[in-house]
Design a protein around this nucleic acid. Structure first.
Lengths: 205, 205
DNA sequence: TATAGTATACTGACTGCTCGGTCAGGTTAC
DNA sequence: GTAACCTGACCGAGCAGTCAGTATACTATA
């Protein structure tokens, strides 16, 4: 049956794609985009170098695919958690904790994510607009929530953008510290610290 | 007179070194370490490629030299300003404002600094211990000052390390935003925002 | 002051190597 | 038998670093 045969191939193909992507993520995390070679990735994936080009057009393609994969998952997760929280304080807590927890699980991805977006300023690295938008969306959602809270008088009249940015940055700092740290504090504690700090800074009382 | 001749050469040599370093800083800032080529640097400095190797041993050498140059200046300036402030609130303000102002002036350096140290986690880039220590020293000094303030009861009993790190990170965030931003807010205002936020979070009242 | 001699500074064509991407040919599954 | 899948030797571009040769500055001597 042609349809069934087609599907079988598709499944196999998707499996290979994912296999390569996982291997690539590890290599990119360890070495960075430049230093990672296609031979490295092929070796890690357990396939020949030529095979990579059956599934992806270029090294950059694989890199972007692994970046996008993680970013979409993170973005969707964060958006859902934030939306589910009612009060602004809980939204902030959800934002911070979701991110801290996600990166706790996805350390390879964090290294790629951080290397790429930590450097947006440094050398604006011609990312597809779509990815860049996905990245910026994270702060924007938070900003909107904060602005809303200001409008409703739930918190002091702060610059929503700046506060959102500050939360975003401290969160990254905490995650970075967790990756470096061997003591292994709990994600909840680190998250609580930020929320506490920010809340004292912007809360109404 | 041999001594006079020697000195003359030294001066000339130092001048060339500085000339190359300035050119290299611009190129590294624009393209990043990997993408910058020795031909680029030679072109920017207005000398032949071979000349670069009369003053520096390798591309990496030039890169490290430009990094160290800026980092030493920043570190010395910050340490002096923080030491000059008496109360912890003023120390924090000095820390933040000195950095914001410094990077406002040294945007090329910021791009190199940020690309390198923003990624310490990403791929621990075999920097000389000396440079790494100089970088970490910045947070440590602040941490000590905060710990002291806690011990004296000037502020709430917070985790000095975590707070220092948070201040460090938000400061970087603000600087990043300033570089991206076209509206040109005043360094003082951006600095005041952070200090205000942090102070509400850790202050005694 | 002119000239020859020498040391120092500089240059850019060249070399060797790395690595992204290709493709002719092999392998596997049915 | 054949179609889909896979491979890795190979190609060519790009670039760090070299070095034989040139230019410049300085010194010694007449």
């Amino acid at each position: 049956m042609p349809l069934e045969g087609r599907t079988k191939q598709d499944v196999l193909s998707e499996f290979r794609c994912a296999e390569i992507l996982t291997a690539a993520r590890g290599v990119f995390a360890r070495k960075g985009f430049q230093a990672a070679t296609m031979d490295d990735i092929a070796g890690a994936a357990g396939v020949g170098k030529g095979t990579l080009y059956l599934y992806y057009r270029s090294k950059r393609d694989i890199y972007l695919a692994s970046l996008e994969h993680g970013l979409r998952a993170l973005s969707a997760l964060t958006a859902a958690e934030v939306a589910a929280a009612a009060r602004i304080e809980d939204k902030i807590r959800a934002f911070v904790l979701t991110k801290v927890r996600y990166f706790d699980e996805q350390r390879d991805f964090y290294r790629i994510y951080h290397a790429e977006f930590g450097n947006v300023v440094a050398h604006p690295s011609c990312l597809p607009d779509e990815l860049m938008a996905l990245y910026l969306q994270q702060v924007q959602q938070l900003e909107q929530a904060i602005q809303q809270a200001v409008d409703r008088g739930e918190i002091r009249p702060v610059q929503a953008g700046t506060v959102a940015f500050a939360i975003f940055e401290i969160t990254r700092g905490i995650i970075t510290q967790r990756l470096l740290d061997r003591t292994g504090s709990r994600a909840e504690d680190d998250g609580a610290f930020i929320v506490d700090l920010i809340w004292k800074g912007i809360g109404n009382r």
